[in-house]
Design a protein around this nucleic acid. Structure first.
Lengths: 194, 194
DNA sequence: GATAAAACGGAGAGTGTCTCCGCATTGTTG
DNA sequence: CAACAATGCGGAGACACTCTCCGTTTTATC
């Protein structure tokens, strides 16, 4: 009656299962990038050389798959936060991170809908991603507030919403420029009143 | 060889066609509000007591239907712009209009995806709506710039993007509050530098 | 009321989602 | 390594939604 036994039974996947899982992820990443976020899941399964059942067993919903595909990238944002905070002044770090966010979205425009679910409310699927992004923006904002160069009542989540929103918006030819100008406006509007 | 004859042949609809068209619009408005933006179009047709063919004849795409359903509401935004401009200081008018936009979206959260297509690029379908909204924000921003209380390089379209983006973002419990705080930040960030 | 034009409607083809379950693979045990 | 249980596979098929096509019905006109 010892050892781990009760609640979380994190079974080890059989080797073939691991292989398939990875294959699906690889194919999905390509497919999402090339053909947009609503590529047929059955197609992805086929391209990965597995049956539809296998895909759905590994990723119960489309969101779950998207999340898995982009998890590593989200983690990069968290890392960047730490790095920028160490290197730049509070406000500059915040600005730089926001710009990074924009660039990062531009490359993978697909994930915007996914990120959206992120601020939507408790959703098991995105729990991990959420805490990363949320943690990053909170750290940045708190530090900036402490430095006195940003208004005290600034809600980190508001900025996150704005960023995600802007990312969500259709990407015309000048999307990136527009997004960057908006980051400037947001930063400038975040300064203390008077 | 006289009279209008060439380009725009705006045929008058047969009375049954008019009736059906209206019925579809009514049902669609309800359905969108109650069951979200991706209610089955066949269901809407059924609820309106017409065949699927009829629905698609009147509205070639889902977007076209959404656009038609919300056209009047978008027009209200254009009217409000004029009214606010006449009554308030340039910056206050801008702020008020943006807040109105937020409220307006809150009520019909469905149209966000539609509005999105609006900034996406030339799309016949949304031409009318686009020109309304675009005209409104441009007038407001231009006036505000002229008054000197807003930076000269402010792009009206940027603000529009931000508004739509924020509207697009999932509506949690405090969505409205957050959106309103963001409008404040945007306005404040739009002031002239220094 | 006869005729042509306009509009209708719904069956069905095409496509995507997701489940179910008989069969195959894996890894463990003696 | 044989044999067995657990684990995982896969794809057929049920279901849902979109959109079209065309024979039938309704409307407007004379």
């Amino acid at each position: 009656m010892a050892h781990k036994r009760k609640l979380p039974p994190p079974r080890k996947l059989r080797t073939d299962a691991q292989r398939n899982r990875q294959r699906i992820l690889d194919v999905a990443r390509q497919a999402f990038t090339r053909r947009g976020a609503n590529t047929s899941l059955d197609d992805i399964a086929k391209a990965a050389g597995v049956g539809a059942g296998t895909l759905y067993r590994h990723f119960e919903t489309r969101d779950a798959l998207v999340e898995a595909v982009y998890r590593t990238e989200v983690e990069k944002l968290a890392v960047a936060q730490r790095e920028l905070s160490a290197r730049l002044s509070p406000v500059e770090a915040l600005r730089a991170w926001m710009l990074l966010f924009v660039d990062y979205i531009e490359a993978k425009h697909i994930i915007a809908p996914a990120l959206n679910t992120l601020v939507a409310g408790p959703s098991k699927v995105y729990e991990a991603s959420r805490s990363h992004v949320q943690g990053a923006i909170e750290a940045l904002v708190k530090r900036a507030i402490k430095s006195g160069h940003v208004r005290k009542d600034l809600e980190p989540f508001d900025l996150l919403r704005a960023l995600i929103g802007v990312s969500y918006v259709a990407s015309g030819p000048d999307w990136r420029q527009s997004a960057r100008r908006l980051v400037d406006i947001l930063i400038s509007g975040s300064r203390p009143v008077k």
